[in-house]
Computed example of a mutant assay.
Amino acid sequence: MALSAEESGRLAGLLAEHTDQVVQRWTELVATSLRGRLSQAELRRQVMELHASMITAGESGLTDLDAEAAAELRAVLAELSQGRARQGFSATETAASVFTLKDVLLELLEIRQGDGALRDFVAFSSFVDQMGLFTFETYVRARESLIADQAEQLLELSTPVVKLWEGVVAVPLVGTLDSARAQVVMERLLQTLVDTGSPYAIIDITGVPAVDTQVAQHILKTVVAARLMGADCIISGIRPQIAQTIVALGIEFGDIATKASLADALRHVLRLTGLETPRRQSRREL
């Protein structure tokens, strides 16, 4: 429900007339809902900004939160929501910082008598509900954006491309390989091949719990892409269980070299480059 011009003016007048009382009481109620997780000074600053923007909007003839007169108020609410999302507060805690204004307004209007005070409280409460819903929706969008950014960062961290030797790079895969992660693996591997000019790449799947048709296809696509860049790929980490699964699924790696361990793959590459180091003699041979 939208505010009328008269109701908007009365709301602004009420907030302006009792500024100290409103700010103090509002801050106390919000502090209780946040259980001390935000400093009193910071909390009071946020409440004062909300209070001032509501007065400005009301004096400008505010009728609805979507109105042009509420632009500053929406900006303050958005800043509050985004800040709380980054600080790890819940959506309920964030929205409660707005909804507690209802208790403050009720305490102020209880002094008045008659139907006029009741109608004002209903109208004011409806507008506070709009503010709370706007805060909640903005918080959710900010939180989703934050989670997406963190997921992207974790995805990049979980797919490192390391240089093992001059001309040899490796991609140690850990966990499930889905389409999004496979794309990141391919992009980072190709970029590293370009940056280092390495002719060999080792894709280690020791940390991949299971290999199915989809995972195998992702690996094969990465190998083909690397070959187009002029690099040969060796797949390492083929454990007995994975080997059995690959055979059972009828997956063909063709002429792609496969090794049981990363050490075997590296030894194979060094042999291809003529840099193979002699194996350490056992004590029995000495």
Rank of each mutant, 00 (worst) to 15 (best):
L249Y: 08
S8M: 05
R141A: 12
Q183T: 12
M186S: 14
L272T: 08
I111E: 15
E28T: 08
P240S: 04
T213A: 11
M1D: 05
D204P: 00
L14C: 00
R45D: 12
E285A: 14
A2M: 04
A180H: 15
K163Q: 15
L14G: 01
L190S: 01
A12T: 01
G230Y: 04
D264Q: 11
V169L: 15
A96Y: 02
I235T: 00
Q191G: 12
E166Q: 14
R143H: 10
A226C: 09
R284Y: 09
P172N: 03
M1R: 06
G237Y: 00
E17D: 13
V169M: 08
P160H: 06
E144D: 15
A180F: 14
K221I: 03
H18E: 10
L177N: 05
D115S: 13
A148W: 11
T19S: 14
Q130A: 02
R181V: 00
M131S: 11
P160T: 04
T100M: 09
F136T: 14
V169Q: 05
M186I: 12
D64H: 14
S90G: 01
E42G: 05
D195Y: 03
L154G: 08
L50K: 10
T94D: 02
T192Y: 07
R84T: 06
A69L: 00
F136R: 14
D204M: 03
A148Y: 04
L11C: 07
E276N: 03
S145E: 15
L177D: 00
R74E: 09
A67G: 14
T63S: 07
E28W: 03
R74H: 02
L11G: 08
R35F: 10
V161M: 04
G167L: 02
T277L: 15
R279H: 13
S81T: 09
A263L: 10
Q130N: 01
L43N: 01
R143C: 07
G167V: 02
V168Y: 09
S81I: 05
V215Q: 01
A52H: 10
F127C: 00
A52I: 03
Q150W: 12
A52V: 06
P199G: 03
I234Q: 04
D120E: 12
T159A: 06
E49M: 13
L146A: 12
R284P: 03
M1E: 03
H51T: 02
A67H: 10
A151E: 14
R86W: 10
S60W: 02
A12I: 02
D212I: 06
L29N: 05
T273R: 15
R112M: 07
